[in-house]
Simulated assay, not measured.
Amino acid sequence: MWYWIVLAITGIISGVLGYFFGKSDTPSLQEKSFEINSLEIQNAKLKSDLETCRKRLDSYTTTSKELQLDKDILTRKESFSFDAQHAKAALGKTIKENDLKLVEGIGPKIEGLFHNFGIKTWKELAETSADKCQEVLDSGGKRYRIHDPASWPMQAKMAYEGHWEQLFEWQEKHRAGKY
């Protein structure tokens, strides 16, 4: 009989000790809150580091683009200069250098939209994708949806490079019903 009593007391003591040891291993609500706060602080630091890295990357990218532009300017074989008299002879009207309205389909308001996007010269328009031109048009609202900017970079390139006769022929062929 003593055997069963000792065994029962040993079992109860083991159960109580096991309960307390097990309870101490699980973190309390306060410990969980502390861990969450430390993780949030660590996350904020990582976001700050990421932003710093992005800024550095942007500055390196800008610097490398400037260096590439300088290299392109130095190694460029052709040099395009605006000849107003040649342009007037080919197109039959006085042309101002870098007037985006020269491009068929661009009027004063659309030219203003391009200027808002930093596209102010024929060269810049020539280097702009048709998708970017569409983005510029979309920024103006619904009324500009009827325009098709697919040929605008090509026309701007002809103007920039001084291919006035080609530009005149292309525009005459593609007037889109304007007379």
Rank of each mutant, 00 (worst) to 15 (best):
S24K: 13
D25M: 15
T26R: 10
T26H: 11
T26L: 14
T26F: 15
S28C: 12
S28P: 05
L29H: 11
L29V: 15
L29D: 14
E31D: 08
E31P: 01
K32C: 05
S33N: 05
S33L: 14
F34L: 08
E35K: 10
I36F: 09
I36E: 08
I36D: 04
I36Q: 02
N37A: 07
N37P: 00
S38H: 06
S38L: 10
L39W: 03
L39E: 13
L39A: 06
E40R: 08
E40M: 07
I41Y: 14
I41W: 06
I41A: 05
I41M: 06
I41R: 10
Q42P: 02
Q42H: 06
A44L: 07
K45R: 02
K45G: 03
K45T: 11
K45V: 08
K47R: 08
K47P: 02
K47T: 03
K47E: 10
K47N: 04
S48K: 12
S48G: 08
S48I: 09
D49C: 00
D49P: 00
L50I: 12
E51Q: 07
T52P: 00
C53G: 04
R54W: 06
R54V: 14
R54C: 04
R54I: 15
R54E: 12
L57P: 00
D58R: 06
S59V: 12
S59M: 14
S59Y: 07
S59G: 05
T62C: 04
T63L: 07
T63F: 08
S64V: 09
S64R: 13
K65T: 02
E66I: 11
L67N: 02
L67D: 01
Q68H: 12
L69W: 15
D70R: 13
K71C: 13
K71V: 15
D72Q: 10
D72H: 11
D72N: 13
I73F: 10
I73Q: 09
I73C: 01
L74S: 08
L74P: 01
L74E: 11
L74T: 14
T75F: 14
T75Q: 10
R76N: 03
R76G: 03
K77W: 05
K77S: 05
K77N: 04
K77A: 09
E78M: 07
E78S: 04
E78Y: 14
E78A: 14
S79D: 03
S79K: 13
S79F: 12
S79L: 06
F80E: 04
F80L: 03
F80R: 06
F80Q: 01
S81K: 12
D83G: 01
D83H: 01
A84I: 04
A84S: 12
A84L: 01
A84C: 07
Q85L: 11
H86W: 02
H86C: 05
A87I: 04
A87H: 10
A87L: 02
A87S: 02
K88H: 01
A89Q: 10
A89K: 09
A90I: 00
A90F: 08
